[in-house]
Design a binder for these strands. Structure first.
Length: 439
DNA sequence: CGAGATTCATGTGAAGTATACCTTTAGGCTTAA
DNA sequence: AAGCCTAAAGGTATACTTCACATGAATCTCGTA
């Protein structure tokens, strides 16, 4: 529509203004109602924090054996002796981090009250941009012991020297916890571990033990044998919770988290059933319960029903995927988009004459072609095939796609890439990527 | 027919380059005595 | 003369590129039965 006259413009503006005002009024009424309802309805939660993943419970259920084992290994540090390095394996949500934190905080309390020189440094290697390269890890360790260093401009060697000095100056037994160490090894190799295990001989007044936590059981295979032997002085494998144990945990926490009578009877079994399907992941079970509670609360429902759990289950999966995709750099998103687009094929049903899309694995080559095309269209610099190949591997690490190498004999070798998304999310993911990429 | 050579499409490692950031340093300017 | 600011110089990590070589089974080639 063209506006040729001032009058026309004014008329339009008046019109718009009127619309906005009336809409506003309606909207406000709605909101008022909502808030009224919200306040008058009974709260569902008593203490929501109990269900959050960073909550540390006062007692840990069904992990007594592991707690003891860890405590036994680490106890020497309270006598100023160096405890063995520990490597802890276990799937996500089996309580590894929880147990370590629990034992360490107890030890820390004792150390403080008896003035034992003990220092605990804990780093989560999975946090992007904080600790996913050798340099950044050392940087983070230094930061935690109170020595800020520049993020560039210093050589890694100097950084190590600084680390040696700092630790040695403390005259303490240092326990270094590296959580989710598998991502670090995958991205940065085992050099860090090698260097860290070799710190001890250099130290005169301090000593350091490393506690590595991983949920990938295969990482150890990719580590240098020398590192392996020194790091694996002790090894603990956390087995997943079974369904009954998860129920116990859920019951316990739910009792603290929710108001009385809010949970309908079969909610907890349902919740633990979902989690048991995910290999006994207690964290997920708790998250699910919390999210379901929030959904119920939002709805103004006074009870937490099974449908809430079902809905929450769908949405958590969705959120995880959307978040990871959203947080990717542009080039990664482009590659991701290219992968999805190239793996969607159209098929014409000859009887009904209707087109339908179906998903088929793509290859690096076709992804690269497609990627090149859109990148040029968008005016984004195009990366080399070599780099794209690496990006594809990194997307796999993130769990967005999976692939296998297939040799097609005479017709070369290819990576067959499959997308790891639930079907219902495809269109949403595509839209999201389109929006983020300005397509 | 079967053993070995060939072939293709891409995987993969090493080394080099560009960029973004960081500290250090030298020179110039200001200020106060 | 001392103090302060600024721009240039010198360093480094990281993301990316270029080059060169590796892979591995379907297919081809060719000698033999």
């Amino acid at each position: 529509m063209f506006i040729n006259t001032i009058e026309g413009l004014i008329f339009l503006m008046e019109n718009l203004a009127e619309k906005v005002i009336t809409e506003n009024v309606d909207f406000k009424d709605d909101l008022d109602n909502f808030f009224d309802e919200f306040i008058s309805s009974k709260p569902i939660f008593k203490n929501k924090a109990v269900l959050q993943s960073n909550y540390n419970p006062e007692k840990i259920q069904h992990r007594e054996e592991y707690l003891k084992e860890i405590a036994k290994i680490l106890a020497p540090s309270l006598r100023k002796e160096r405890p063995s390095n520990i490597f802890i394996y276990g799937k996500t949500g089996t309580g590894k981090t929880l147990c370590i934190n629990y034992v360490l905080s107890k030890m820390n309390n004792i150390a403080i009250s008896r003035e034992i020189p003990l220092e605990i440094i804990s780093i989560n290697c999975k946090l992007k941009k904080v600790a996913d390269t050798e340099y950044r890890i050392i940087l983070e360790i230094l930061k935690q012991i109170g020595k800020e260093m520049p993020s560039t401009g210093v050589s890694t060697n100097d950084l190590y020297k600084e680390l040696y000095e700092q630790i040695d100056n403390r005259k303490k037994t240092v326990l270094l916890v590296l959580d989710e160490i598998d991502t670090l090894i995958k991205k940065a190799g085992d050099e860090i571990l090698y260097n860290l295990t070799r710190i001890n001989p250099e130290l005169k007044t301090s000593q350091i033990s490393i506690i590595g936590i991983t949920n990938d059981l295969t990482v150890m295979d990719s580590i240098d044998a020398r590192v392996k032997s020194s790091l694996n002085e002790e090894e603990i494998v956390f087995l997943p919770y079974n369904a009954i144990q998860i129920q116990d945990i859920l019951k316990d926490r739910a009792y603290m988290a929710f108001q009385e009578g809010v949970l309908s009877e079969d909610v907890i079994p349902k919740c633990s059933a979902y989690a048991a399907r995910e290999h006994g992941d207690a964290r997920r079970a708790l998250e699910l319960l919390r999210f379901a509670g929030e959904l119920a609360e939002r709805e103004g429902s006074e009870k937490l029903m099974i449908e809430h759990i079902d809905n929450a289950n769908k949405k958590t999966e969705r959120n995880r995927i959307i978040d990871t995709i959203k947080s990717q750099p542009k080039q990664f998103q482009l590659v991701n988009y290219a992968i999805i687009k190239t793996s969607m094929k159209e098929k014409m049903n000859l009887v009904t004459q209707k087109k339908s899309t179906f998903i088929e694995p793509t290859t690096t080559g076709s992804v690269y072609d497609y990627y090149n095309r859109i990148a040029k269209e968008l005016g984004v610099p195009t990366l080399s095939l070599r780099r794209i190949s690496d990006i594809i591997v990194e997307l796999e690490v993130l769990g967005l796609i999976s692939f296998k190498l297939v040799s097609k004999g005479r017709y070369g070798r290819s990576r067959f890439i499959t997308i790891d998304l639930p079907k219902s999310l495809y269109s949403e993911v595509i839209d999201l990527l389109k929006e983020d990429l300005n397509l």
